[in-house]
Design a protein around this nucleic acid. Structure first.
Length: 299
DNA sequence: ATCCAGGTATGCA
DNA sequence: TGCATACCTGGA
């Protein structure tokens, strides 16, 4: 009763640092920023007001917007300033020159790819914490982005730790190792609850497992990821692309399957075949091409 | 009310 | 290997 609900100085609402341009500098357009943050790579960003986003990963909370020249700038709760300033360049893969990578894609003889690269200028593959990426994509099967976000939010609020103010971190695998499957169902995870629970139990017995996969080459990491319950080819590829920076990974969901069939292979037989095609045709940075085509052909 | 959604595991040819 | 089917849940 002594705390004003809207006191901006109270411990409920954190004080925010002043805005700073990300370094190394990163440019987006408003649509490519929205697609990067809310297009299915990450599930913990929301648009706070027009063009301004707020999101969290691991123990980090940040606000994001574009400045007059479309450069990314950020601000965070003051108490997290040190942590976030260290984490944010890596999260946005700011050291990676995506324009440079894109010039390696076969766009010159590919009008569809060429158009996607132009329409979604600035779109990036971000680099999320590996273990968290695994958790969020275990929640993703047969769900729309909005529902995946809802599950993640519930997992964080019910089972994660408070970071600051009203922001909660996703539970770690160690924390999930203590959680009965029933609790995960209360978070609306549905049949995915069993996968999460069994993966948590497995990782409790094999605590080094994820650390190892993250630094392994793509093929080997993929094999090990696939051993985990609930991790099929698509989810393994997403986790490696968005959580381990394996840019050759080419996740094939229903949308990309249709896209590949429409644009490149009308007699496509399976997602497996599409993934193989994607990696061969687009090469080392197939995952980057995937993101642009995905953005271009979704809906 | 059905149907389906950025899949996976399982069982059976 | 290749295909069909069930699986939680919530929104259209």
């Amino acid at each position: 009763m002594f705390i004003s609900m809207i006191d901006p100085q109270s411990s409920i609402w954190p004080r925010w640092t002043k805005w700073k341009r990300l370094h190394p500098a990163v440019q987006f357009t408003h649509v490519s920023l929205a697609e990067t943050l809310d297009g299915g790579q990450a599930f913990r960003w929301h648009e706070e007001k027009d063009g301004q986003w707020i999101g969290l990963w691991a123990q980090n909370v940040a606000r994001i917007r574009l400045d007059y020249s479309n450069h990314l700038e950020w601000s965070c709760p003051e108490s997290l300033s040190k942590k976030v300033s260290l984490a944010i360049p890596s999260y946005f893969a700011a050291q990676i020159d995506f324009d440079g990578l894109i010039s390696n894609l076969p766009y010159q003889r590919d009008p569809a790819l060429s158009k996607a690269l132009k329409d979604w200028k600035g779109l990036r593959v971000i680099r999320q914490p590996f273990s968290e990426t695994l958790l969020t994509f275990l929640c993703s099967s047969n769900k729309r982005i909005i529902q995946i976000k809802q599950i993640c939010e519930l997992l964080a609020r019910r089972l994660g730790t408070n970071i600051v103010g009203n922001f909660y971190a996703l539970p770690t695998w160690k924390e999930l190792g203590q959680v009965p499957e029933r609790e995960l169902r209360y978070c609306k995870a549905g049949y995915r609850a069993r996968f999460i629970h069994e993966t948590a139990c497995f990782l409790r017995e094999n605590p080094k497992y994820l650390k190892r996969i993250e630094i392994l080459p793509y093929d080997e990491g993929r094999k090990l990821l696939r051993q985990l319950p609930g991790v099929g080819e698509k989810i393994a590829d997403c986790v490696l692309l968005f959580g381990a920076g394996k840019l050759e990974s080419f996740p094939v969901d229903t949308w990309i399957l249709k896209t590949i069939a429409n644009l490149y292979k009308s007699n496509l037989r399976s997602p497996k075949e599409a993934a193989l095609f994607g990696r061969q045709y687009f090469g080392k940075y197939a995952g980057v091409a995937q993101q642009y085509l995905f953005a271009s052909n979704r809906r």
